[in-house]
Nucleic acid binder design. Structure first.
Lengths: 361, 361
DNA sequence: GTCCCAGATGACTACGTAGTCCAAGATCGC
DNA sequence: GCGATCTTGGACTACGTAGTCATCTGGGAC
């Protein structure tokens, strides 16, 4: 072997790895030059069918795999996209991550994953990705600590939220339709005759939570409904939904609640049940996400479903266009969001004041 | 610039990317050789503090980032681990993925993600990872289509299940304690006085589902309880749990059910409610996963919680030991699994025959 | 028959890094 | 004061790939 140097004097552990064959070895086996192997591998023209066959056979026999590190070094491109995730296993983020991975794989890019560990900034995850070598970055569930995040990556960046300030020309924001979805959920409740709708907000450092709050507010304003005070924001968990639900259940005039996500809605359902308020008899509840369990809760939950696949596809389209210097594709038309009405919402029963705590005359 | 060739004649799109500075440029700026920069970057000894400072300053000024492609090409190692996931957003798999990412990041490895698209084999995902360049692979939620998966990767592989046949010497199976957990859940129900326990199995091509089935069976056998027939296996979804629950609700002598996961348990809860069987009055139900919502369901769900972080940490420990040629670390002691008893399980009410469908004489 | 052109193939090189080996200066022992 | 050892830094090279350009062959036009 010509590569015996790599085998001989080096320690097995921590040293250089045994490598597979390279184009040179394939070339020798096929009796052609390394460059011709390169042509075959990359499907370039000007290779006679006979030579091509010989090379392909040698590739198969040697179990040759192209070395992406060498290719990346030469071309300066990695065919890899980095995804910054929050490292949570919440339904929305993980569904989105899966959808992003699928879209990137379809586009011929591989995926590098970096999560922001607790307390760590997004920029640390971005740095880790840049150091590892990526052609572009998707900020999957951006959060911010008040000030907008300022990134100076030398690759295109697509953010799925708005709390990010990016260098112009190489970046883009691709949002789902969170505001519209929240508006839709609120309007549904108003259309059932509820005088107004209360909101269980999510963590306000999440872009998604702010969007839902905004959509709720917009719908109330548009309908001329009064805006009730907000309970303290939750953290997407059922526990936080329960806590907020307990607060709300104390109030007598509540008939409709829009929770920031399904998990918080589940907590609120439990809180209302514990307080003796029937859902949907006394209070209607709407969630957000349409988790698989939503249809099987007691009562089945009215909720809003986002089209994560569509959001992911568009984000990847835009990012790859930026990477490859093509113009960004046109905004696809069509709502990516949909309300599923189930048994947790219903018309207002009556306008009698306090339903349970004291069965008024 | 000496690299002007890369700037000049090449097309901007699809061609070579503009690159950051290399060690050579840093060296020129600091007035040392490229090798000395390499020494500073890698923390090697034999560099005077003064030179080190000069180099570090140049690095900061030029915003130098080491090129991992070049390093990987030279060393044959990538400091990257591939994770094969199933591309589902189920609670277990996504929690595990997050935990794996955290563990790898902590160990100084970056993460390449590949999911098996629908209908695609695991080996395709493995090939994609190998082609991209990884030092090792974790099979996160291995499934198999009957025959054990036979992989011929030239890197170490750690599988989190058993349905995989691996080349010896460079691979390992690191299981959670799924069997023990299922046994624990079943024993809990038996200890409440239930004559036997029915099981809602998960998809049997998943290793995790087979483990739970096995643990359930072992507990019944050990207790001398009869083994009831199995409903058709579900797919982890609440819908499939509902379907199986409807089947079981027809039967008169059911008092205890162990579902393969919490989502299926949620479906079963709904099915029993629809059939007029009270939980836990008539039927006790145990789930698996302890999803955040479990404590807030109606009724709150007794369930089993796996320690995903522990499983992930151990998998990464073992894999990195294999990669670096160190002996695998000792098996950590301690149960990674825990039963949380809530209101969905209770003692048998009585042994009277059919509670609801027909109040037999 | 000569010329020319297109297709087919290969030699050479750069990409950025770290291992190897060598050179020059510094420090020490005697 | 001189060789021996240590410290510090640099020159050179390989890693596997694809771009550039040169070479060679064969066939058709004239």
């Amino acid at each position: 072997m010509s590569v015996s140097g790599a085998e001989g004097g080096l320690p097995a552990a921590g040293g250089r790895r045994r490598r597979g064959p390279g184009m040179t070895e394939v070339a020798r086996a096929a009796g052609v030059s390394q460059k011709t192997v390169s042509r075959v591998v990359n499907g370039e023209p000007h290779v006679s069918p006979e030579v091509r066959d010989r090379v392909l056979r040698a590739i198969r026999e040697l179990d040759y795999r192209p070395n992406t590190a060498a290719r990346a070094l030469l071309l300066g491109r990695y065919r890899r996209i980095g995804v910054v995730s929050l490292g949570s296993s919440l339904y929305g983020p993980s569904t989105l991550l899966i959808a992003l991975e699928r879209a990137m794989q379809r586009a011929g890019y591989s995926v590098a994953l970096a999560s922001t560990l607790e307390g760590q900034k997004v920029s640390a995850a971005v740095d880790a990705l840049l150091e590892q070598g990526v052609d572009g970055i998707v900020l999957s569930e951006p959060i911010d600590d008040g000030t907008p995040l300022r990134l100076s990556a030398d690759v295109p960046v697509v953010s799925l939220g708005e709390g990010v300030e990016l260098t112009p020309g190489t970046s883009a924001v691709v949002g789902g339709d969170g505001v519209a979805a929240a508006r839709m959920a609120t309007e549904h409740l108003l259309s059932l005759g509820h005088r107004t709708v209360w909101h269980l907000p999510g963590p306000q450092d999440w872009w998604a939570a702010r969007d839902r709050l905004r959509g709720w507010r917009e719908a109330l304003t548009a309908a001329g409904a009064p805006e009730p005070p907000l309970p303290s924001p939750g953290d997407w968990s059922p526990a936080s939904g329960y806590a907020a639900g307990r607060q709300l259940a104390e109030l007598s005039d509540i008939t409709a609640v829009f929770a920031a996500n399904d998990d918080m809605a589940i907590g609120a359902l439990r809180a209302f049940a514990d307080a003796g308020r029937a859902v949907p008899g006394d209070v209607s509840v709407v969630g957000y996400d349409d988790i698989p369990a939503a249809a099987y809760l007691s009562p089945p939950l009215t909720t809003v479903r986002q089209n994560f696949a569509a959001v992911a596809d568009r984000a990847v389209d835009v990012l790859i266009a930026l990477i490859e210097g093509r113009p960004a594709p046109a905004e696809p038309s069509g709502q990516a969001v949909e309300l599923t009405v189930r048994a947790s919402t219903g018309p207002v029963r009556d306008q009698g004041p306090v339903p349970h705590p004291a069965p008024a005359p």
